[in-house]
Every structure is written in C-alpha cells, then in structure tokens.
C-alpha cells in the first residue's frame, strides 16, 4: 500500500487513467429553452487516484459523471479512458448509482452474478463467478444476506450490494454517483469507512460525486469543485495531502483538515 500524495509523479509519456477535455453539455427544455449545464470542463485523473467532484446541487455533477460513464455523450469535447475514447458505456468503467439499482427479482448474489455474466462471453467458469460474487459480498459484510432480495435489505445493505457489484466487475475506473446520499447519517458514516478501506486495498481509479465535504476529504486524493450552474466549470482543484492508510479520527482533528474544509465550504457557497 503506497502513499498517493505523489500521484502526479507519473512516468513520462504514460497517459492518465481518465482524461476529460473541454467537455460541454446542455439539455433542451420545453419551457426554459436550451440550458447549458456544463461549460467547458477539463481535468484528468491518474491511475490509482481517488478524486471527488463536489458542487452545489444542480451544478451538473451527475451529468458530468454520466458523460464519463458514456451514458450521455458530450456536445463538445471528449472523454478518454487511457487510450480509448469513450462513446458508449463500457465494462472498463464500473458505476455505483445514486439509488441502489438492484434488480428486485434477483437476490443480492444473483444481482452480482448478473453483472458478471450480462455481457455474454466470460473468461470465468460459472463456479469462479459464483465464488467471486461471494468474495465481494463478503468484503462488504453481506455473506449472511446474499440470498435475500433487495426488498428484504435495508438501504445501507442495498447500496453495499451495489458497491460489491461494481467492484466485482474489476473495472479500471469506478464511478460513484452520490452512492451514500440517500442513507441516514449513521449508515453513511459506517459506509464511508468501508469505502475508504476498500479503495485503499483495491488501488483502482475512483471518481466520486458527492455534496458531502467531509466524505470527499476522507476519501479523496484530489477534490474538484464544480461552480454553480448553468455552465458549470471546475473552479477549484484541491490536493488532499493526508497519508494513507487514513484514519478518520486522526484526519479530522488535524489542522490541515480544518483549513481545507473551510476553503471548500467557502468555495461552495461563493456566489458566481
């Protein structure tokens, strides 16, 4: 487990894991006309980096994530995944949705298995897929609940299945769209720690959309602040210098934490 403070010390010539360049996106509304949600947004994410995108609600955070996921296509600009331009959703990009999006007629395990076999050809045997699904459900402490249907699980458990499913896909990049936003404070707190542990053990590239400053500070190496929409832009790009593995209590009582937190909150509440 290495420190990620020096994530910009990349090998020369090595492309970033994810590159978003000059992306714009607007939607046509029946009454309000054309609304430019994102004005030119550019940033790149290095391999193994955990970045968070925060911004006021309605700033287009989720739109940005959908563009990266390939679920929407940008009006201008492009999204690149190392060497490949993203034009459609890809298994190289795993998504954890805002709502849990589990298929209600399948059990927790079947939901993970479905993700593993949905694209047809799989290099794994059925038994391998099964043990992979069980492995990931175990890592989010759901072994006991693997044969329950989503309707029988609490909100936190449902979202943990969603997280296990995204991790099980072994995508290079994981996109998390306010995954904990709909949960109560206590559950959210516990799941933040679980995500922290998983992300530090897994060394993948993460993009988290959140409106929770503390969540962003706990989990990320870098925080991008999106300005108030329409025509949202990245108005700040903050490096989070805490060492990994991180300890929540230690971080939250540090001087840097308070400074960063104040800076972020000021940035978020600043009027355009």
């Amino acid at each position: 487990m290495g420190t990620t403070i020096e994530t910009d010390a990349q090998l020369p010539g090595k492309p970033p894991a994810l590159e978003i360049s000059k992306v714009t996106k607007g939607f046509a509304h029946r009454r309000r006309g054309f609304q430019q949600v994102l004005g030119e947004v550019s940033f790149s994410v290095d391999e193994g980096e955990f970045i968070s995108i925060i911004g006021p609600s309605g700033s287009g955070k989720s739109t940005l994530l959908k563009l990266i996921a390939g679920l929407e296509s940008p009006d201008q600009g492009h999204v690149r995944l190392t060497d490949e331009q993203i034009a459609a959703p890809s298994r190289r990009l795993g998504v954890v949705f805002q709502q849990h999006v589990l298929l209600p007629w399948l059990t927790a395990k079947q939901n993970v298995l479905f993700a593993l076999q949905a694209h047809g050809a799989s290099r794994r045997s059925a038994a391998e897929r099964e043990s992979l699904a069980e492995h990931w459900l175990g890592l989010v402490q759901l072994s006991e609940a693997q044969d329950l249907k989503p309707g029988e699980l609490s909100g936190g458990m449902q979202q943990r299945v969603g997280i296990a499913r995204a991790f099980a896909l072994e995508s290079e990049v994981l996109l998390l769209d306010e995954p904990l936003g709909a949960l109560d404070a206590l559950t959210r707190h516990a799941l933040q720690l679980q995500l922290l542990r998983l992300s530090e053990q897994q060394r993948r590239t993460f993009v988290l959309v959140t409106h929770d400053v503390d969540e962003a500070l706990l989990l990320s190496d870098r925080i991008l602040v999106l300005s108030h929409g329409p025509q949202a832009r990245i108005q700040q790009d903050l490096r989070v210098p805490f060492r990994r593995p991180r300890d929540r209590t230690a971080i939250e009582s540090s001087e840097d934490y308070l400074t960063l937190r104040r800076e972020l909150l000021e940035s978020l509440t600043a009027q355009p």
Binding site: G70, L71, P89, A118, H119
Partner: peptide
C-alpha cells in the same frame, strides 16, 4: 436506471430484453 445499468454492464441484447 435498470436500462442504464444494463448498458454499463455491456449486457447482450438477449440479456437486456429477457433478464
């Protein structure tokens, strides 16, 4: 969102329709 999920998983047409 179920259909978005199917797309992100690159589900085959048969899987998307039948499952």
């Amino acid at each position: 969102l179920y259909l978005d999920l199917a797309r992100t998983l690159e589900a085959t047409t048969a899987n998307r329709v039948l499952r």
